[in-house]
Design a protein around this nucleic acid. Structure first.
Lengths: 211, 211
DNA sequence: GTAAAATAGGGGGAAAACACCCTAAGGAAT
DNA sequence: ATTCCTTAGGGTGTTTTCCCCCTATTTTAC
């Protein structure tokens, strides 16, 4: 039978021991090696065979988990990473997922969930617990603020999302610079933004301009 | 016992019947009303009591599910929406989740999964099947950019994509305005753009900033 | 039928952004 | 040891952007 190999990176020896003995109860998985820090992992990965999955602690001194995850993704993109963490604040979790990790578990997860995560990731799938999924959904959710804009304002916004100056936009739209000033100032109020960057972001969010 | 009320919107009468009879087997849920179209739903929601949860078909004529979801979110933000769909292409799913729905199920989901989704959403949580979670994670994942920018430049670009003035960015980054001028002018050349809009567009295209 | 919006246009001055120029320390490569 | 590159910092002057003020039509709503 083909075993799935695992590497474990965590600075707490006792925690590593617990995880390793848990994994030993799963015959289809095998711990290839352990590392007590990101640096140690980077050394070992060159010497040893590459694991299929890396279990990674987020909170480690010197090189933290997110940095190591980025490093692994860059140098060994085929390795799948599951983060083990005690951290549960939204920004940290989302930042970590952005690095491309395929699973996120809190350290107090029960063994069944741990096994489910391993199975999912070994099968090239992802595993995120419900509260993480929720964070991801909330991050994607963009409440629509449909402010009604007339056609001239939409046209203007399209141009505002280019590198043209307002003077050049005025020429393109066959109006004076002053008129453009008026459109712009009106939109600042309507869209509740402060400057051109705000206009550009609004236009992109509302798909008035293509990227 | 407090029942959780459900409204069902789908243009297929037989499918509605199937769902209703399934829900009848769950004593804690009650179907408040059904609608065969978005328009019908909009009328009924005014007359009837509001449901706690709306089960919503994506593919409907005239007003599609995503549009209706946006409408519901705008007028009744406290109603939770679960999408029922046969569509499984990534863009459609992600666009729908952006409207703020709290669950997404394929129509061939088994009754156990259906029940799990109802329970999660009734509990003000979210429910997305593994393949949807995976899509969300992939959307959040930002591969590292190929153009070699140093960390300070990346930091600066992130701020350039906000409504902060350069002076304010300088304060945030604890450097002088002149240094920021230098970063900016350097990036104008490196990225071949003319002004701040160019920087913002670059940052967005390369996912250095999120929308 | 009148009031109030939306649409289109404009002026002047202050602030910010931009262009082009420069120095210098620290590290890597030759 | 010297060059080259990166990172950090700076000065000056011009252009653009932004803010606050204003007028005159044309729709829309009551």
């Amino acid at each position: 039978m083909q075993q799935t190999t695992i590497a474990l990176v965590d600075d707490h020896r006792l925690f590593r021991q617990g995880i390793v003995s848990l994994i030993k109860t799963f015959p289809e998985y095998d711990v290839l090696f352990e590392a007590g820090s990101g640096e140690e992992f980077c050394e070992r990965i060159h010497q040893k065979n590459k694991p299929d999955i890396v279990l990674l602690d987020l909170n480690m001194p010197v090189m933290n988990g997110a940095q190591l995850a980025s490093w692994i993704k860059e140098h060994y993109p085929e390795i799948h990473i599951i983060v083990l963490s005690m951290v549960d604040d939204a920004e940290t979790i989302l930042m970590t997922i952005k690095t491309g990790v395929r699973g996120y578990l809190l350290k107090d997860a029960d063994p069944l969930e741990f096994k489910a995560a391993l199975d999912a990731v070994a099968d090239h799938n992802v595993y995120f617990p419900s509260f993480v999924t929720r964070l991801m959904a909330e991050r994607l959710y963009t409440p629509s603020t449909d402010v009604k804009l007339n056609q001239r304002e939409k046209d203007f916004l399209k141009y505002a999302g280019t590198e043209l100056t307002y003077k050049e936009i005025a020429e393109k739209m066959f109006v004076s610079l002053r008129t453009i000033d008026g459109y712009r100032d009106g939109l600042f109020v309507k869209l509740n933004v402060k400057n051109r960057v705000g206009l550009v972001l609004y236009a992109i969010k509302n798909k008035l301009i293509e990227l």
